[in-house]
Amino acid sequence: FDIYVVTADYLPLGAEQDAITLREGQYVEVLDAAHPLRWLVRTKPTKSSPSRQGWVSPAYLDRRL
């Protein structure tokens, strides 16, 4: 999967189903980028939180090589 970094805090609107909150600087794996406005991502697990999966706007993501 492609690795992206979150460029700004992402707080989903209440109406968005299956969306997750992301923090600036967080790394995520993009699982599904087929839709231009919503990408399915999975967060990297940390010592304090397990990995999470949900939909985010790709405008908040920047690809890492």
Rank of each mutant, 00 (worst) to 15 (best):
T46N: 08
P36W: 04
R63I: 12
Y10E: 02
D2A: 14
Q53L: 11
A34I: 08
S51N: 03
S51P: 09
V56G: 01
G25M: 02
R64T: 13
R42M: 05
A19I: 06
R42L: 04
T7D: 02
A59N: 10
F1S: 08
V28N: 00
D62E: 15
L40G: 00
L31H: 02
D62R: 15
V30R: 01
L65M: 13
L40C: 05
W39A: 00
G14L: 13
K47R: 12
Q17T: 14
D32R: 04
F1K: 08
V30W: 01
V56Q: 01
Y27K: 06
A15N: 15
G14E: 15
T21F: 14
T46K: 05
L40R: 04
R38M: 09
I3C: 12
E29D: 06
R52S: 10
S48W: 13
V28L: 03
P50M: 07
Y60H: 08
V30T: 02
T21V: 12
L65H: 12
I20R: 02
A33M: 14
R42K: 07
T46D: 11
H35P: 03
P12H: 06
G25C: 04
R63H: 11
Y27S: 06
L37V: 06
K44C: 15
Q26D: 14
D2N: 11
R23F: 14
A59T: 11
H35N: 15
T43M: 04
V5S: 03
A33C: 15
R38E: 03
D32I: 08
L13V: 12
Y27G: 03
T46I: 05
G54Y: 10
D9M: 05
L13N: 14
S49M: 12
S49V: 11
D62F: 09
L22I: 04
Q53F: 08
P58W: 03
L37R: 08
L37A: 10
H35K: 05
Q17I: 14
D32T: 04
L22H: 01
V5Q: 07
Y4I: 02
D62W: 07
D32K: 04
L31Q: 02
S57W: 03
D2Y: 14
A59H: 10
K47T: 12
I20S: 02
E16D: 13
T21C: 14
T43I: 08
T43K: 02
L40T: 00
S57Q: 05
G25Q: 02
Y4N: 01
R23Y: 15
E16F: 08
D9H: 06
R64Y: 15
H35E: 08
D62H: 11
Q17D: 13
Y27V: 13
R52L: 14
L40S: 01
F1D: 06
A15D: 15
V41Q: 00
R63N: 09
A8R: 15
P45H: 07
R63V: 10
P45Q: 09
A19D: 08
R23Q: 10
T21W: 15
V56N: 00
S57A: 07
D62V: 14
S48E: 14
L22P: 00
E16P: 08
A33S: 14
V5M: 09
G14I: 12
K44M: 15
Y10Q: 03
S57C: 08
T7W: 05
V30S: 01
T21M: 13
L11D: 12
I3D: 05
D62I: 13
K44I: 15
Y60V: 11
P50Q: 07
A34Q: 13
S48H: 14
P12W: 07
A19C: 08
L65Y: 14
L22W: 03
V6D: 00
P45C: 09
G14V: 12
P58R: 05
L31E: 01
V28R: 00
P50K: 07
A33D: 10
Y10V: 10
L31N: 00
A15T: 15
L31D: 01
L65G: 13
E16I: 08
P12V: 08
D2E: 12
K44A: 12
D32W: 11
L22A: 01
E24I: 14
G54R: 02
P36D: 08
L37I: 06
W39M: 01
R63E: 07
Y60W: 05
E29H: 07
P45D: 08
P45V: 06
Y4P: 00
R38V: 05
R52D: 06
P36Q: 07
A34S: 15
Q26S: 06
A33G: 09
W55E: 01
F1E: 07
A34P: 04
T46P: 03
G14K: 11
Q17S: 13
R42S: 04
Y27N: 04
T46M: 07
A33Y: 11
E16M: 09
E24R: 15
A59L: 14
A34Y: 08
P12Q: 06
P36H: 07
W55P: 01
V30Y: 01
R42F: 02
V30F: 01
R63S: 08
A19E: 11
V28H: 01
L65N: 12
D2F: 14
G14D: 15
E24D: 04
L11I: 15
I20G: 03
T43L: 07
Y10I: 08
Y4H: 03
H35V: 04
A19N: 09
T46E: 10
G54S: 03
E24S: 11
R63Q: 10
V30C: 03
W39R: 00
P58C: 05
A59V: 11
E16N: 09
K44R: 14
L61D: 01
V5W: 07
V41Y: 01
S51I: 09
R63K: 14
R64A: 15
W39L: 01
S49G: 09
L61C: 02
A15W: 14
Q26K: 02
V5R: 12
P45L: 05
S57D: 15
V56I: 10
V41I: 08
Y4E: 00
D18R: 05
K44P: 10
F1N: 09
K47Y: 10
A19G: 14
A19W: 14
Y27M: 11
L22R: 01
V30H: 01
L61V: 03
T21A: 13
K44S: 09
P45S: 10
A34M: 10
T7Y: 03
P36V: 06
R23T: 10
Y4Q: 02
D2K: 11
F1M: 09
A34F: 09
G14N: 13
V30A: 02
Q26E: 15
S48T: 13
S48M: 12
V30K: 01
W55Q: 02
Q53V: 14
P45K: 08
D18V: 04
T43R: 02
D2G: 12
S49D: 13
Q53A: 08
T7P: 01
T46G: 08
A15L: 11
L61S: 00
R42A: 05
L13F: 11
L65E: 14
P45A: 14
V56M: 05
Y4M: 05
V6E: 00
L40V: 02
D9I: 03
V30E: 00
V41C: 03
E16W: 10
L37D: 15
L11V: 15
P12T: 08
R23M: 11
